[in-house]
Amino acid sequence: MATVLERQIKMGDDNQNPMHPKLFKVMKVRKETHDTFSLNLEASDGSGGFHFQPGQFNMLYLFGVGEAPISISGDPGVKKTLTHTIRAVGAVTKGMMKLKKGDSLGVRGPYGTTWPTKEAEGKDVVIIAGGIGLAPLRPVIYHLLSNREKFGKTVLLYGARTPDDLLYVQELEQWRSRFDFEVLVTVDRALGKWQGNIEVVTRLIPKATYDPANSIAMVCGPSIMMRFTVLELMKQGLTQNQIYISEERNMKCGIGHCGHCQIEHIFVCKDGPVFRYDAMVELFKKRDI
């Protein structure tokens, strides 16, 4: 006999526990910087194929240690391999740094909103990344480059702390050598042989070539960096609804149940992490919320 609840709501499938991770195998570990590394993963059951949209993240589970929300940094066009770039800063991510080929990892996801790759079609695309912020934007770059004809001018402005902290150095070189992709890289400080820019990433914004009236900007990096970047983009003539940012908050569940990632009415895990700036502008004015 139907209970009250069953009459009121359609019961979900009991067997589909959203907190159960799927098992993945580490196929390759690549050291990116002293504290950052990339993992190439494949589904252990051989089912293959992980579908995601640029900007989404997974909850990665290290056996016995715990979970961490990590954005997907690989090519959305390559379904077989799931790639994550991880900065070792907490117990879980430091533990993950010790993973070797053949080890296994739990994966839940993909979760969250995506970068506006559809909306950006026919427009100039300005990608601005700070530090590890390049990782969640790399899938966009892959997407742009494999669908290059759909977009106008494409620009990557990337800032890191020092030359040693730059991610994906070889790929940056490859991208830079293309005639249809403007790549400007800068660091905040440098010693030794560095011949590149020493400048904050915001100072690259006026130097790049794009049409502010017909551009979409996608920004990811530390909060302060994103705020100054938005300021500079708007100085150049972009409007709030041309700018997208990715927010970071504490996340335990990834599905809007645990309550940790709230910014006022927003659950970053499901309403974000990618937001159009006009949705966040009022919240950015408030402190400690």
Binding site: M11, D13, Q16, I255
Partner: peptide, 18 residues
């Protein structure tokens, strides 16, 4: 716990036969 895209299995389980 039961009306979003993801349903909480534990809650559903406990709530089902009340």
């Amino acid at each position: 716990f039961t009306k979003g895209d993801y349903k909480d299995s534990i809650y559903l389980r406990n709530r089902k036969n009340n």
